[in-house]
């Protein structure tokens, strides 16, 4: 198993660029139209609302939509990102070239991450414009840290989707990834549950789940943002570090699994 070396970078970037091109040509960016429509319509209707209400509602709605649309893409494109290449046998000619399995996996991952980045940035710009339209200048700027946090969360979700799809079917992988997404957002509930349990064994199990699974609360700042709050620098730095660390671990495991697989 060849591990990536310095010479790997150009190949990884080449693969990432191609994965990005694939997403664009497979019309992954079409969701933007849906989003723009949603935001425009709600902006027009909600602009009737009094005071600062319109901005808060649009922010809440818009950021939630960005999170869900982004998660949807991360899961559905993510689970087929590598699987599809094996299934369609496009990997055959790739791996006969001096391309390592890890390079391929990382390249595909970065390609989808770039797609999500562009996607989210465009949706964010649409949301900003809608907020300017209803006259809420502070929120038009304040949404961006929350959008960055959403992007970090989607990077993790993408890695998780790739990990599952490296050893199971896309349908199962999508379900498991979605499960992780849900559990990740309710992890504080899990922790509370652990505290409330009487049996030490049950407590240990629930705590293991809490610490073993990703905690997506770290990336959640939607409600706070619509209440005109800004995340601290500390929170942002922590979220970035957490996302990078988690992604690295998850992709490493995926890479180990993928590197041992036969391409059928």
């Amino acid at each position: 198993m060849s591990s990536p070396s310095t010479g790997s970078l150009p190949r990884i970037l080449t693969i990432a660029t191609n994965a990005f091109r694939e997403a664009v040509r497979d019309r992954v960016l079409y969701n933007l139209i849906v989003f723009v429509l949603l935001i425009t319509v709600s902006a027009v209707f909600l602009s009737e609302l009094s005071g600062g209400h319109a901005g808060r509602v649009i922010t809440n709605l818009g950021l939630t939509a960005i999170l869900f649309i982004g998660t949807f893409i991360a899961i559905f494109v993510g689970v087929s990102l590598v699987w599809k290449e094996i299934e369609k046998r496009t990997v055959f000619s790739i791996f006969a070239k001096p391309v390592g399995r890890t390079e391929f996996l990382v390249g595909r991952y970065l390609g989808l991450a770039a797609t999500l980045f562009v996607n989210i940035a465009v949706m964010g710009a649409g949301l900003s414009l809608a907020l300017l339209f209803v006259g809420d200048r502070p929120l038009a700027a304040a949404i961006w840290p929350a959008i960055l946090l959403i992007f970090l969360e989607l990077s993790v979700t993408t890695a998780v989707a790739i990990l599952f799809s490296s050893f199971s079917t896309p349908a199962l992988s999508a379900m498991l990834t979605f499960l992780i997404f849900v559990i990740g957002h309710f992890s504080s509930t899990i922790k509370e549950l652990a505290g409330a349990l009487a049996s030490p064994a049950a407590k240990a199990i629930v705590e293991a789940i809490y610490y073993g699974l990703p905690n997506y609360r770290v990336f959640s700042f939607i409600t706070e943002t619509s209440n005109y709050m800004l995340p601290t620098g500390r929170m942002m730095a922590g979220a970035v570090a957490y996302a990078f660390g988690l992604t690295a671990v998850v992709l490493s495991i995926a890479s180990i699994v993928f590197s041992r697989r036969d391409m059928k």
Partner: peptide, 19 residues
């Protein structure tokens, strides 16, 4: 796989990125 720099391969029933 460094050897792959010096070889070529055409798979059976070849299929490539159709986009």
């Amino acid at each position: 796989i460094e050897t792959h720099r010096r070889i070529g391969y055409s798979p059976e029933n070849p299929y490539f990125y159709d986009y």
